[in-house]
């Protein structure tokens, strides 16, 4: 019972945050709403015994990435008129069509596939509590998923080198 209440509270927080991101006129408020969504998601992970994923969600998304967004919004600090000027009718139309398309796709997926009764993954909540979520993620990363893990490391490294090169060029 308490678990269910917890779930509905977090689900509400996540969805309301997501709606607020697009509905609020002030970009800074949108960024903060997205933080709320990420915190709600982290809470949902926690209720699935995936503590590691939950904490990483907060550190990486809510902590680091959204802080970057916040910096950009704060430094650009758009006035009311500039915000309005960006809203071309074409953008609105395209946004509506794409949004409805994605929504229809999701509804279709929900209606046609047995999402709720499908096969369970390797690590359901009960098994995670037994193994420990850090150990489970760590072991999978260096065994089954070692190639994608290494590829991602290379990708991030290229990103860092790229950032340094761009910053250097600007400075000259």
């Amino acid at each position: 019972m308490a678990g269910q209440l917890f779930f509905y509270f977090l689900a509400l927080l996540t969805v309301a945050g997501a709606v607020a991101v697009v509905a609020l006129p002030n970009p800074l408020y949108s960024v903060l709403s997205l933080v709320a969504t990420f915190l709600g998601l982290a809470g949902l992970y926690l209720s699935l015994n995936a503590q590691f994923v939950a904490v990483v969600q907060v550190i990486v998304y809510a902590g680091a990435i959204m802080m970057l967004f916040l910096f950009v919004v704060m430094l650009i600090n758009l006035g009311r008129e500039e915000r309005q000027a960006l809203r071309l009718p074409v953008q609105k139309l395209a946004g509506t069509i794409i949004g409805l398309g994605v929504f229809a796709g999701l509804v279709n997926l929900y209606a046609t596939t047995p999402l709720l009764t499908g096969a369970k993954g390797l690590f359901p909540a009960a098994r995670l509590a037994e193994v420990g979520s850090v150990q489970a993620v760590g072991r999978l990363l260096v065994t089954q998923y070692v190639l994608p893990f290494q590829a991602m490391a290379v990708l991030l490294f290229v990103g860092i080198v790229g950032a340094v090169v761009l910053a250097r060029r600007r400075a000259r």
Partner: peptide, 25 residues
């Protein structure tokens, strides 16, 4: 006693930065 205690502290200190940045803005 959280089994990811160290990371929990870092996650919270990451959230704490928001207080400073938002107050400043």
């Amino acid at each position: 006693d959280v089994n990811v205690g160290v990371l929990y502290i870092f996650a919270l200190s990451g959230i704490g930065v928001y207080g400073i940045v938002l107050g400043a803005w």
